[in-house]
Design a protein around this nucleic acid. Structure first.
Lengths: 193, 193
DNA sequence: TTTATTAAGTATCGAGTCGAAACCATTATG
DNA sequence: CATAATGGTTTCGACTCGATACTTAATAAA
């Protein structure tokens, strides 16, 4: 029965989060999905800021995401650029307006206040447990494994200076960058195929 | 930044949950909201099985809930009865079909498998942390405080036999019943007004 | 070089959710 | 008895969502 309880709790907290997002976005004419997309773009790294990345993360379909992205662009929260190396790929960037919005409105204030009552230890533990749950869920679900570079199999930590490296793309990663969300994330707990 | 991460995790896990629910309900023509409602009715106690209870729990509006409930009734998953004591109140009960469905489909299989990799200790801790988060959120949010009778201020535990009592309604509660979700839940952590 | 295939993204459509507001019936308050 | 207040329903428009078909670019095969 603990599973039922946990599932219900996550759904209910998620519902509360969404209704807060809806309220905070209402002034700007944004829906909760839009807030989610902005928050994703704010957190993801340069390999993952594409419509496909958003689609996988939100768990919706390409078509739906495309519409939401158009709305966000029309309202001036994001900008689209065609990728230099692949003409099919579109890169999404937050505008100043978008970044200001997400910094101010996410996470919602009530949610922050609620988490403020947690000790650092509890808050860290909650974050860890949820991360583990998500990783396992994504494994079951055959879906892409979102995660931060820092814990990725491809991640190579250099001892020298501030620069690490992604073993998949061989590109350098700054310390800050290695804590952003990446689409290509793979973790050692991955099941053998 | 831990807050941002936790909020995103809960949203993403919630999204995955919903898409699993959508898939599992598709055969019966149910949306994820309908699955949520059935799971709520399966877990709530006899004070809370009303459209208003569902509305508060799902965090949507009366009108929306009313529609969803009609669909569930039309498809034979629930039954409506007018309350004996208050002619305005409608009581919602799962039919056998509804109960079978929720027992079989909730929580979704992938979610269960993911939680199976957790130790009992971690799983319990996660449940506790989420419960605390929800209680705090509900306090901030001025919304109703859902919770199980067992941890409620109104709850009176009798030493004798199997019967407890709700101090608010003065009605007896069985042991089993005292672990169901109640709308009128109040907890000692409630802020002084 | 063509051709086929795959991948990234867009466009469109219908079903359904959602929130808001107006409304009805019953109970509570005065 | 009149006036709220409460629990539900209905209706409406905006929007999400998933499915399908489509466009374009990159890649693989011939």
């Amino acid at each position: 029965m603990e599973k039922t309880k946990i599932a219900s709790l996550i759904e209910r907290i998620g519902n509360l989060l969404r209704s807060e997002e809806r309220a905070s976005g209402a002034d700007s004419g944004l829906q909760s999905v839009h807030v989610q997309i902005l928050s994703y773009l704010y957190q993801c790294n340069r390999y993952s800021n594409t419509p496909a990345g958003v689609t996988e993360f939100i768990g919706s379909t390409k078509g739906t995401t495309s519409q939401s992205i158009n709305i966000l662009e029309k309202k001036g929260f994001i900008k689209k650029y065609i990728d230099d190396e692949d003409g099919r790929v579109i890169r999404l960037y937050l505008t100043e307006k978008g970044e200001d919005f997400i910094k101010k409105e996410f996470p919602p204030t009530d949610f922050c206040s609620a988490l403020d009552t947690f000790s650092t230890k509890d808050s860290d533990y909650l974050s860890q447990l949820l991360t583990k749950l998500l990783v396992q869920l994504q494994l079951e679900n055959k879906s892409k494994l979102f995660g931060v570079c820092h814990t990725c199999n491809h991640f190579k930590k250099f001892g020298l200076g501030d620069t690490h490296q992604c073993g998949l793309t061989l590109e350098p990663l700054s310390e800050k960058e290695s804590f952003l969300i990446c689409r290509e994330h793979e973790q050692s707990t991955k099941k053998a195929v």
